[in-house]
Design a protein around this nucleic acid. Structure first.
Lengths: 196, 196, 196, 196
DNA sequence: TATGAATGAGTCTTCATTCAT
DNA sequence: GATGAATGAAGACTCATTCAT
C-alpha cells in the first residue's frame, strides 16, 4: 500500500510520528517517565529510529513538549478570536472552558506542558506568556486585576480537572467569573463611585 | 556515639529517617527520579536499610508521599483552626495563603504531591479530599458554590506560584476572594460594616 | 562549483579524500576511535561515500594506515638519498632525525602506524621492513651490527619524543651515534678528519 | 569448594580478578579495545560486577594500567638492585634485558603502559620517571649523557621486541652498550685525558 | 552511481532487588 | 536483624552496515 511505502522513506512523517507518540506518552505517564522503547513502540518504529531523529532523549522530550505547547497555543488563538467576536462575557468564557475541558486529551496536554514548565525555563516562559496573553485579552474590558483574577481562577479550574473525574459545571464557572468580574468596582484602584 | 547507637536500636526512627529523606528528595528531584541509593545517602543509612523497611521502591515512594500529604493535612488543620477562631474572611484567607507561599519548601511539597496525584489514584483521592475539606470549612459561611469557587481560585494561586518568581500580592488575593464570596459584602481597604 | 563538480565526477580523488581524512583522524584519535561518520565529516563527503569506496570500516582503516605507511616510506627514501649523497655520518643522521622530530604531524603518523603495528600483522611486516631498509642503508658503511644498533637507538629516540615535551638534543644524538658506530672514528665537536 | 565460596564473597579478590583480567586484555588488544563484557568474561564474573567495582570503564582502565605499571616498577626495582650489587656493566645489562625480553607478557605489559602513556598524562609522568630512574642508576658510573644514550637504546630494544618475533641477541646488546658506554671519552663535557 | 535513511547489535551505565554473611 | 555484595534487566546512546531511492 501507499501507506507502507510512505512509512518506509518519509523522514518528515516519521519524525512527526515519533514526536507525536512521545507527546501522547508524556500526557499519559509524565515527562520523566518516557523511554526510547516506549516511544518506539507507540510510534511503531524500530528503536533505532528514535535516536536517529533525536540525538538525545531530552531532545525528543523537548520536541514533544513543543508540539504540545503548539497545540495549546492554537487553542489559545481560537479562544482569543472567539472572545474578540463575541465579547469577554462570563457566559462565553464558561462555555469555552467547558468545551476545552470536554477534550480530555487537550486538558492533559495543557497539564503536561505546564507541569513540565515548573522545571524547564523555556516552557515556563511560554506558560507565563499564555497567562499574560489571556490577561491581555480580558484586561481592556474588565481591568487588569479582575482579568488576572479570572485567569488565576481559570487555571484553578483546569487544575481541578486533572484531579477530578467530572469537570466543574459550566454554570458554576459562569457564576464565579461573574462575581470576579462584576463585584469589584468597589476595589478598583481609583474607585469612583460604588454601584453596591 | 549515642546518636549512632540510638539509630541502631530504634527501627522506628530509622524508618522515619528513610521516609523523610525520600520525601525531601521527591520535592527536590521529582517522584520518578529517586533511587534507593539516593535515599540511603540522604538518610545516612546503609543501602540495605532502605529495602529492609520497604519491600519495594514504590512502597517507599508511597510512604514518602503519604508523609508529604500528612504535612499538607497538618497545615490544613491549622488553617481550619485559625479560620474557626477568626472567621473565613478574605483578608484572613489571603494572609494565610500568603504565609503559605512564603514557605518555599512547603510549596514544593504541595506541588510534588499534587503533581504525583495526576498519575496516582491514591494521591488523587487525597488531593480531592483536601479540596473538599477546604470547601467544607468555607461552605457554612459562604455557601457551597462560593466556597468551591474560592477553593478553585486558591488552587490557581498556588499553581501560579509554581511558575512565577514573585507570588501574587496579598491584597490582590483578598480582593479577588471578596468578589468571589459575594459583591455585597465587599471588603475595600477601609472596611465599612460587615453583614456578619 | 568546479570543486564540487570535480568531486562528483572523480571517484579517484574522492577515494583519496576519504583515505586521507581517515589517516589524519587515525593520527589524532587512534586507529580504534575512527568511525564512518567522523571520516565522512572530515573528508566532507556524504556518509554513504565511505561505505561505497570501502566495503568495511576495517578496509578503510587498512587503506589509511597504508597511506601513512607510504608517507613514512617516502621520508625514508629521502633519507636514503641524502645519505647516499652526503654519507652516513652521525652528524648527518642526527640532523635528519632532528628535522624529522620537528615535524610533529609526521611523528604522530609514525607513531600511529607503529603502534597499530603491534596488533596488526600486516603493518608489523611493514614496520620491520623499514628497520631492515634503514639497516640496509647503513650496513655497507658501518657493518650490520653497528647499523642495527644505530637503527635501534634511533627507534628509541623517536619513541622518546612521544613522551617528552622536548625532543633529544641533536648533539646528544650525534655523539651517541658516533659511539655506536665505533669509538675509533670519534666525531667530537670540532671534527678532525673523516676516515671516509 | 573453598574456591567457589571465596569467589562468592570476597570483594578484594574479585576486584583483583577484574583488574587483572583488564590488564591482561589491555596487553593483548590495546587500551582502547577493552569492553566491560570482555573483562567480565575473562575474569569470569557477571557483567554487573565490572561496573560494581569500577564506576566507569575509564576507571577500570586506569586501575589496570596502574597494575601494569606497578609490575614494571617492580621489575625496575629488581634491576636497580642487581646493578647495585654487580655493577652497571654492559654484559650485566644485556643479560637483564635479555631475561626481561624472554618474558613476553612482561614486555607486552611494558609496551601497553608506555603506549597508553602517550595520551595519558599521569602514565606519561610515570614512564618518564622510569627513564629518569634508569638514567639515575647508570649516570654515576658512566656520566649522564652516556647513561641517557643507553636508556634510549634500551627503549629501542624493547620496542624492537614488540615488532619482531625474535628478540635481539644478548651479545649484540652487550656490544652496543659497550660502544655507547666506552667510546665516548672523547665527547664527555670536561674531558680530562683520552684513553684512545 | 550516490546518498542517507534504516535497523539492530552492542556499548556503557544505573539500579531494583536478592541474598549470603 | 542489618549490611552491602551480587546480578541481570533495562535504559540511553552509537554506529557499522544495508538498501531503497
Amino acid at each position: 500500500m501507499a501507506e507502507a511505502v510512505r512509512r518506509r522513506r518519509d523522514p518528515e512523517s516519521r519524525r512527526l510520528a515519533i514526536v507525536t507518540a512521545a507527546a501522547e506518552l508524556i500526557t499519559e505517564v509524565g515527562v520523566d517517565a518516557i523511554t526510547h522503547r516506549m516511544v518506539a513502540a507507540r510510534a511503531d518504529v524500530p528503536l533505532g529510529a528514535t535516536t536517529q531523529y533525536f540525538a538525545t532523549l531530552d531532545d525528543l522530550r523537548a520536541a514533544a513538549l513543543q508540539q504540545l505547547a503548539a497545540h495549546v497555543a492554537e487553542r489559545m488563538a481560537v479562544i482569543r478570536e472567539v472572545i474578540g467576536e463575541r465579547g469577554a462575557t462570563p457566559a462565553l468564557l464558561a462555555e469555552l472552558i467547558h468545551t476545552a475541558l470536554a477534550d480530555a486529551t487537550a486538558v492533559q496536554a495543557d497539564h503536561a506542558v505546564v507541569t513540565a514548565a515548573v522545571h524547564d525555563p523555556r516552557l515556563r516562559e511560554l506558560a507565563r506568556h499564555w497567562t499574560d496573553e489571556f490577561v491581555g485579552i480580558l484586561a481592556p474590558v474588565h481591568g487588569h486585576d479582575r482579568a488576572q483574577a479570572a485567569a488565576v481562577f481559570i487555571d484553578g479550574v483546569l487544575w481541578h480537572a486533572q484531579i477530578h473525574e467530572r469537570p466543574l459545571d459550566q454554570h458554576f464557572i459562569a457564576n464565579a467569573l461573574t462575581a470576579i468580574f462584576g463585584a469589584a468596582e468597589a476595589t478598583a484602584s481609583p474607585p469612583p463611585s460604588t454601584t453596591a
